[in-house]
Structure formats: C-alpha cells, structure tokens
C-alpha cells in the first residue's frame, strides 16, 4: 500500500449480497445528452443510404434486370475473381498467419505493418503499385512476360491478383489473432502424444482456430467481392474478363440506374449474409 493511503475500516463494508437478485443493475447514464443525440445521428447516417437504395428498388423488375446478359456476365466474373482471390488468401495467408503467430521475427512491428498496409492503402494506389510491380514493364512483370509469356494486367488473373492483394490482410489478421490466443500449449501436448509438426497442424492447431478460419475466409471474400479501385486500375474494365459486379454497377448508374440499384441490392444481401456468418466473432452480443 502507498504511504498515506487511507485504509477503510472493515466495519464500513456493507453487509449482504453484492447485488439484489432478479433486478439487473442499470447504471445511471453519465453521458452528456448532446453526445447521445450525435451518436444517433451517426447511426442514421449509416442506415440512410441503405434506405435510399431500398426505396428505389425496382422489386417487380428485379428478376428480369438480374437475368440480363451483362449482369450475368459480371456476376460470373465476380464469382471467379472473388473466389479465386479467397482461395489465394487461404493458400498464402494461412502460412503467413502461422509464421506471424508462432515464429520469433526480427522486426515484428515492421512485418505486421507491411501485412496491414493494404487495409489502409487507397485501392487506386494499390492498383497503381501492382501495375509497376507486375505490369508488362514492372519490376517482376517484365520477367514474367519475357520468361513465361505471362502478362497479368487487363486479364481475369490480374483481377484475382488485385482482389487478393486487398483481401489478404483481413484473413491473416483474423487467423493470426486466433492463433495467438490459442497459444502453443495444445501443440506441445500433441507433440508429447506422438504428433509431428504436420499432424499437430492438421489435428490440433487448425481445428482449434476453425471459427477464425471461417471468419477470415468470409471477410476476405466480402472484401474481394466488393473490390473496385485496385481492380479497375490494374486489370481494367473488360466485359466478360475483368468487369466485376461493382464495375458493372458504376457503369450502369449512367445508362440504367435501375440496374445499378438491383445489383447493389444483391451486394447488400451478400454483405448481410457475411455479417450473419461472423455474428459470434465480430459482433459482441
């Protein structure tokens, strides 16, 4: 105890149970009233755009708009790009998350900042950066082109790369946090039971963080599906190849606003589905 700190005599401590059973304690609000109002205004700001979208929704025409060939083509490209990017996030992101969580790195803060960078980088900047790295005259792109004849910009593969670039941190950060929380104690127990490194990974480590794997995959997929700026900059806007649903929405806004609203509704529904998937993880009840 600090010198001079007053001790409370034991007789001052009230008797009886700490809280009355059956009556949940509801603390008296200590927030300034004005702050509460601003908080609700902010909430309205988040809800309003969705309401705007819903009131303009061409409900009866929805099936016909969504079955237009351009929309279906954009949907096909979007599915290929977003699922391809998600697969890339899992294949590359899982080893990265394991390295970050389990290995002792030399500059952990720098490495973690690099991993997080695409989350905060403007997508257009990400696309530009990819162009100068993987473009035909880019740092690595020129070798891809001259050695393998592979050129990524303005191809579906390029869209996948752009979407994977922006989505990867969502998967890595989610899974790494879960791996850290799980700790290596169970891995040690598995080792004393005869499980080698791969068996431990397959039978203990990954099953233990399964909820985070699901959450990370859903987040990465949602991010890849919505990707616009990096895709447009790096992969362009070619129907049937790189024109995804968000690009189609943007284009439709000028010539056919109803179609833009219809596609937007589909993307809102997907986003809500992802939130439901993540409800236990990212939304405290």
């Amino acid at each position: 105890m600090r010198p001079g700190a007053a001790t409370r005599p034991i007789s001052d401590i009230p008797e009886g149970p700490l809280s009355q059973p059956g009556t949940p304690a509801r603390p008296i609000s200590r927030l300034p009233a004005a702050l509460t109002w601003v908080g609700f205004v902010a909430l309205g700001m988040l809800v309003l755009p969705i309401v705007g979208l819903l009131q303009r929704a061409p409900w009866s025409a929805l099936p016909s708009i969504l079955s237009e060939s351009e929309v279906l083509e954009a949907l096909r490209v979007s599915l290929i790009v977003s699922l391809g990017a998600t697969a890339a996030c899992i294949v590359l992101g899982l080893p990265l998350a394991l390295v970050l969580a389990r290995r002792r790195l030399r500059f952990p803060r720098v490495v973690r900042a690099v991993v997080m960078l695409p989350m905060v980088l403007p997508p257009v900047v990400a696309g530009t950066a990819l162009l100068f790295a993987l473009g035909r005259r880019g740092l690595v792109g020129q070798w891809l082109d001259s050695w393998f004849g592979v050129s990524l910009p303005f191809t579906t593969a390029g869209s996948v790369v752009a979407a994977a670039f922006v989505a990867l941190p969502f998967f890595v950060v989610t899974v790494e946090a879960a791996l850290r929380q799980a700790g290596h104690e169970l891995d040690e127990a598995a080792a004393t039971l005869g499980a080698g490194a791969w068996a431990t990974l397959a039978h203990v480590t990954l099953p233990t963080v399964r909820p985070a794997l699901v959450a990370g995959t859903a987040l990465a997929w949602a991010r890849a599906l919505g990707e616009f700026g990096a895709t447009l900059t790096f992969a362009g806007n070619f129907p049937g190849r790189t024109r995804t649903l968000p690009l189609e929405t943007y284009l439709a806004l000028e010539r056919n606003p109803e179609a833009a609203v219809a596609i937007s509704l589909v993307l809102v529904a997907v986003a809500l589905a992802v939130l439901v998937t993540l409800r236990d993880r990212w939304m405290p009840s």
Partner: peptide, 27 residues
C-alpha cells in the same frame, strides 16, 4: 518430443477442446 517415448500430464491439463473425451484419449 513426438519421437520420444515420453508421455506428459500437464498441470493445466491441456485437453483438446475440439475433440470429445474419448478422442482426446485416443489421440
């Protein structure tokens, strides 16, 4: 560790939370 014939009972048990009791023991 996994190639040694040494078993260990940890102070904090360290049971596998994703496996049933029987599969913990069968591990």
């Amino acid at each position: 560790a996994h190639l040694r014939t040494v078993g260990m009972v940890f102070q904090d048990h360290r049971l596998f939370g994703h496996l049933r009791v029987i599969d913990n023991v069968a591990f």
